[in-house]
Design a protein around this nucleic acid. Sequence first.
DNA 1: GCAACAACGTTACATCATAACAAGCGCGAT
DNA 2: ATCGCGCTTGTTATGATGTAACGTTGTTGC
Lengths: 179, 179
Amino acid sequence: MPEPASDPAFERHDHARCAAAALEAAARTCDAQGLRLTEIRARVLGILCESHAAMGAYDVLDRLREDGRRAQPPVAYRALDFLVAHGFAHRIERLNAYVACGHPGDDHAPAFMICRGCRRVAECAAPAAAAALAPQAEAMGFRIERTVVEAEGVCPDCRAEATDGENGAGGGSEDGADA
Amino acid sequence: MPEPASDPAFERHDHARCAAAALEAAARTCDAQGLRLTEIRARVLGILCESHAAMGAYDVLDRLREDGRRAQPPVAYRALDFLVAHGFAHRIERLNAYVACGHPGDDHAPAFMICRGCRRVAECAAPAAAAALAPQAEAMGFRIERTVVEAEGVCPDCRAEATDGENGAGGGSEDGADA
DNA sequence: GCAACAACGTTACATCATAACAAGCGCGAT
DNA sequence: ATCGCGCTTGTTATGATGTAACGTTGTTGC
């Protein structure tokens, strides 16, 4: 393996490109598999892609309403369910919230690093974490279908902010939303 | 390490003894650490210990009310928060529910096997799963404070039941509650 | 066309969780 | 003893998250 496939969520990066890539990948995959990436589904994925912070279904719903739609909760949940079912987004159980998938297309066993300061979530490939459970599952006759691996902690930006004390408005983490 | 510390949740075992052990361990720990295992807290732990199935806070609340109390939700949540904070119980994020700790006293990095058929939960010691994330966290400057590892699948009893087709009332899983 | 199926719109409700504040209790200091 | 303080509990009210059910719209294949 080359490097551990780190995620850019906590680094400065060309976010417009990273968001566009996610949407494009979803469009291509849907085309290839005969799935329908409808306007609402694409819009919801776009909303998730606006930042690397986890969004609750009702946050997504509010953003849909800002578009002028009169959407009700099932609209958001159905779109999110579709995106999660086909690997374009992930549900973060710890937060009851959602993030766009950082590695769409790959068949991955994702693990997540969740910052409790800014809610940003980095997605890692951590097959070893899930694999570590296999022997014990085997031993007790349990068939694993899905494994949730979520680490909660503090991202570099929020660590810096906490350490700073008060350095004025310039340097800290990106206000709890984007990256 | 001797054996992988399997959990009896999916096996026949002397459940009365296993429940009593959990309560006793909690009492001893509280005594040693100056914590107060009050009547409500002990009762809630007892309720969780009645089975290895995850219970929602409102399930616990219903059981408290069956005792004759007129308890409101915060009563259940406060007792559960106490038990989780001190390691006598665990929250299962995937289910928004709770189970009694299977290895009280140990300083453990638990992982859970959650049966989607009967909601029973086996607790495993899986330090390797959490450890697998350390290098990537290190690489991105993320400080991990807690790691959630939850595998969802089907326990041996529920697999047997699903395979059986219809074998009458004798052999299958224990009706989705206890073990 | 039109039948069949997927997606969407909408209402209503179920489930999970906590803020806020009052009241009781245990215990050490004076 | 009793006062004050902190922890626990009682209670009300509300917020946050999630879904069942059913009708309508749109797409697709015939």
